[in-house]
Amino acid sequence: MAQKNTKKDYNSSKSNNGEIRAKKHLGQHFLKDEIIAERIGDTLSLDGYTNVLEIGPGMGVLTKYLIKKEVNVIAMDLDSESIKYLKGNYPNENLEILEADFLKYDLSQIFGKEQFAITGNFPYNISTQIVFKMLENKERIPEFTGMFQKEVAQRICEKEGSKAYGILSLLTQAFYEAEYLFTVPPAVFNPPPKVDSGVIRLKRKADYSIPCDEKFFFRVVKTAFQQRRKTLRNSLKSFGLSNSIKEDIIFGKRPEQLSVSEFIALTQKLENDTISTDQ
């Protein structure tokens, strides 16, 4: 008999190894379409790395395609039911199954010091946090692919000039080339979400260093977009702009009008302005 739904468990997926409940508080929607799962697995180029971290494997629909490749796979999930199911159904010498919370996990503990890619069907409720943590560890992550809520996937890949372009787009594209690959309808999930999903690929730039202080760059971007309707002259007042820098044409623009390279140039101007006003 199927288990009764609760606030945390809104559906269940039956298998030969029992039931795995899709838990609302974990943002779980189990992908059930094998073709789409294989397509997501094939988004990885496997260029320059032999290790893959899968986040939120659930019942392993994507995992089964990853372990067919010549890579070492770690499947990480904080759902103990999923972990038990995976261990019972996917014993494989190139697969490690890890019960852990990605957002809290020290990534220096996996794959030694080697490079690794990240992929997965990411829980909607933490997907942007996953991207930001990936950026914190970009030195080890040459590629990142996976499925998001379509709106978030589009935002990550959006270019300047769009209302969807923002902090997530700009900080990601400062270090990675972003590509929106394909859309996935709700019907291929159990339970189906209320929105479409989108699959993306991020490939780290050959030179992913930026010619300004990285922490200061992040601060400039976040401060500018907190008041995105204002011109930079007004949204960046807290930086103590000198009278001379305020006259620069770039400060008459709004943040969504600036490309990644222009935001880097803006950060450099602010760095130099801070130096000159301190003297």
Rank of each mutant, 00 (worst) to 15 (best):
Q227I: 00
I67D: 00
T267C: 14
I130C: 05
T277L: 09
L236Q: 10
N92I: 00
T274Q: 12
I264Y: 04
N5S: 12
Y124H: 08
T274E: 10
T274V: 00
S259W: 11
P192H: 09
S12C: 06
V221E: 00
L236T: 10
G56T: 06
E99Y: 00
V71S: 06
K246I: 12
E96C: 04
T274R: 14
F189E: 03
N92A: 14
V71D: 04
S242G: 14
K230L: 01
T145R: 10
E70T: 02
P211W: 05
E34N: 15
G112A: 07
T6G: 13
P211K: 07
A2R: 13
L62P: 04
Y10T: 11
Q279G: 05
K64Q: 15
I118Y: 02
P186L: 07
R140F: 13
E247G: 01
K253W: 01
Y49I: 05
Q226W: 01
L98P: 02
L26A: 09
P185V: 05
F218M: 07
A22I: 03
K230E: 02
E214H: 04
F251L: 15
P191M: 00
G88E: 13
Y85Q: 03
G161N: 07
P191W: 00
F225G: 03
D213L: 05
G18A: 07
G112W: 08
E256L: 10
D79H: 07
R204S: 04
S276D: 14
G161T: 03
P255H: 08
D196L: 00
L98A: 08
